[in-house]
């Protein structure tokens, strides 16, 4: 067998991992990316691909408790591991506070970056439970959003921090801000 043929017909290797609490086993090409394993083998299409250079962060998932860009991890590297994707974040029919924050604070528009953004924000709050605005903006540097201009994403993370800490610095009644603003502006 020549080298060329060896490359053209790569061997498949077994992988098994626990994703969102369910055990999966499959045979995959060694080059298969984790994001493609999740999307194509398991049908978990909530994890998105927005670039090919690990800039955009749309593909962020938890692997063994660490947030990773699943476009930059091979499925075989996750062998034996535990993965949580956006589909696994809500518990017992309740949104995670970060998901809720994005909804409350209009932290998304088209929603394409949102799964990765929520996962990164979730990981940020695990590291820093009550982050400053600067820490939030810095902590989300690995995730790009083209729609929101980030301000409401910051608010969403602050909301989640407030919920998780049983209060925090954020006023959950903040949604009324927009209406108050408008009320003062309807001046003609």
């Amino acid at each position: 067998m020549t080298m060329t043929e060896a490359v053209a017909a790569p061997a498949r290797v077994p992988v098994q991992m626990t994703v969102n609490g369910t055990d999966y086993a499959a045979e995959v090409e060694p080059r298969l990316l984790l994001v493609h394993f999740l999307r194509d083998n398991l049908g978990l299409t909530g994890t998105h691909v927005g670039c090919d250079t690990s800039q955009c962060g749309a593909c962020v998932v938890y692997l063994n408790g660490e947030s990773v860009k699943s476009c930059t991890v091979l499925a075989v590297q996750a062998n034996g591991g535990e993965v949580t994707t956006i589909e696994g974040l809500a518990k017992d029919g309740e949104y995670d506070p970060v998901q809720q924050g994005f909804w409350e604070m209009h932290g998304l528009q088209c929603g394409y970056c949102t799964p990765g953004m929520i996962m990164s924000a979730h990981a940020l709050l695990k590291r820093i439970p009550n982050p400053t605005e600067e820490q939030i903006r810095h902590g989300l540097e690995g995730n790009l959003c083209r729609c929101t201009g980030y301000q409401n994403i910051v608010k969403a993370v602050q909301y989640a921090a407030g919920q998780m800490n049983g209060g925090g610095t954020h006023d959950p009644a903040n949604t009324a801000d927009w209406e108050r603003e408008l009320a003062g502006k309807s001046d003609s």
Partner: peptide, 22 residues
């Protein structure tokens, strides 16, 4: 005139939105 939360969002914050590649 009301700041109603978007009805689009539940699918998008849970990974259930269906985009082209999905």
């Amino acid at each position: 005139g009301k700041a109603i939360k978007r009805r689009e969002d539940p699918r998008l914050i849970t990974g259930a939105g269906s985009f082209l590649d999905d």
